[in-house]
């Protein structure tokens, strides 16, 4: 029971109180880059959930069975980024062959994910928090869900920002950042929120 409760706590904090984008500042580039339309934002979000879950599982296993056994923990950064890059490439090829429909929807976002700091971030945080395998995978999935929530919410805000009248210097990017700030402000309401 307590194990289930701790998984629940990890999920809630990853989605709301410790949201990857709005509280931890991981994955800002895709958040800003792919949030102009709600459907592309949703596609990116789903691809990120998928890759973060796989990456959490793969890097946890590589760390536990390879790096720790061989005493090579200092190679984590290099090995993890290679594992993630290989994984993304593999997922792309697999989807193209096996699920062409899904590939059509997610394909263009996959290469971008290699350099998404949320993915490398989740791999490193799993190790830092010394999560078990199940906890790591749950953290990966729910971290991705938090990412999707933020990017979808933000894209619908942004669609409205497009045609608002504001000072020239603020048009486009700066205004989007300020809107994201206000979104972050609303997510602050969840901080200090504990399940235990």
């Amino acid at each position: 029971m307590s194990a289930l409760l701790s998984l629940f706590a990890i999920s809630l904090s990853a989605i709301l109180a410790e949201n990857f984008i709005l509280v931890k500042f991981l994955g800002i580039c895709p958040f800003m880059g792919v949030s102009k339309k709600t459907d592309t934002a949703l596609g990116m979000g789903l691809a990120v959930i998928f890759v973060m879950a796989l990456a959490s599982a793969a890097t946890w296993a590589v760390n536990e069975f390879l790096l720790v056994r061989l005493g090579l923990e200092y190679m984590q950064t290099v090995v993890f980024i290679l594992v993630i890059a290989a994984l993304v490439q593999f997922v792309e090829m697999f989807l193209q062959k096996a699920l062409p429909a899904l590939y059509q929807a997610l394909g263009i976002y996959l290469p971008l994910i290699t350099t998404n700091c949320a993915v490398l971030g989740v791999a490193l945080l799993n190790i830092q928090n010394s999560y078990t395998f199940i906890e790591a995978v749950i953290y990966g999935v729910t971290g991705g869900v938090g990412f999707t929530l933020a990017i979808v919410l933000f894209s619908s805000v942004r669609e409205r920002l497009e045609d608002c009248d504001c000072p020239k210097a603020f048009r486009g990017f700066p205004l989007a950042l300020i809107a994201a700030g206000l979104l972050a402000l609303s997510f602050m309401g969840f901080s200090g929120f504990k399940v235990f």
Binding site: A169, P174, L175, I178, A180, G181, A184, M188
Partner: peptide, 20 residues
């Protein structure tokens, strides 16, 4: 975190203004 977004937004706006 909120302050990070707001400060960067204003600084980028300032840079765009200066560059223009």
């Amino acid at each position: 975190p909120v302050g990070g977004f707001l400060t960067l937004g204003c600084l980028i706006a300032l840079t765009q203004w200066v560059n223009r």
